[in-house]
């Protein structure tokens, strides 16, 4: 075991400082991801060209997600409120952007 050389002196605290600062930065950035996800989950404006149909309306096409009144996207099959043409205003159905569905 050789003693540390002059050039190596002080490298451990610097390395520790480097690691700690890197960990702190990484923790802050990583911790911001859930907040970004929450922000991304906020209600969005549907594309203007997308047809908006009331839930359960006949021939509304390949509905995959529905936007609830609170703005959350949920699978279309889950929210079955409103019958044929029931027009439950709280739930809308997203269709394809070209509106052909």
């Amino acid at each position: 075991m050789t003693p540390p050389t002059t050039s190596a002196r002080g490298s451990r605290p610097r390395s520790l400082y480097r690691s700690m600062l890197s960990l702190a930065v990484a923790a802050v950035v990583a911790a911001s991801i859930p907040f970004a996800a929450i922000y991304a989950g906020t209600p969005r404006q549907l594309p203007a060209t997308a047809a908006v149909a009331s839930a359960g309306s006949a021939g509304s096409g390949q509905s995959r997600l529905v936007t609830t009144a609170s703005g959350r996207l949920i699978p279309a099959g889950v929210a079955s409120t409103g019958g044929a043409g029931g027009g439950t205003a709280a739930i809308t159905t997203r269709t394809s952007a070209n509106g052909s569905d």
């Binding site: 990484a26 950035v29 990583a30 859930p34």
Partner: peptide, 18 residues
């Protein structure tokens, strides 16, 4: 998904900062 992205981002940012 949030957990996956958080778990992936931590080592990336750590290695980048380092």
């Amino acid at each position: 998904m949030v957990a996956t992205l958080t778990g992936l981002t931590f080592p990336v940012v750590f290695a980048l900062s380092y």
